[in-house]
């Protein structure tokens, strides 16, 4: 399972659990995320302000803040 985890300083993504609904992509206020092959991907982690909107509304618990 760990092989499908994307770990950054600010966000962690578990691609195994992501169903590609796009909710986190849409409600991210800094446009940090995108969908690629129906999975969430980080476009620009430097823009992430760790507001937690993605984690709050991810129905699949596939994206969350690191260190919070």
């Amino acid at each position: 399972m760990n092989s499908s985890e994307t770990v950054t300083d600010k966000l962690i993504i578990n691609e195994n659990w992501c169903k590609g609904c796009g909710i986190c992509v849409k409600f991210c206020p800094k446009k940090v995320l995108t969908l690629e092959n129906e999975k969430v991907k980080i476009v620009d982690i430097d823009k992430c302000i760790q507001c937690g909107q993605c984690e709050l509304r991810c129905p699949d618990y596939a994206i969350y803040l690191r260190g919070k």
Partner: peptide, 13 residues
């Protein structure tokens, strides 16, 4: 997990 609900179902939230 992952749960059985459809992609984007509000139930997980």
């Amino acid at each position: 997990l992952p749960q059985i609900w459809c992609p984007g179902c509000g139930h997980g939230i």
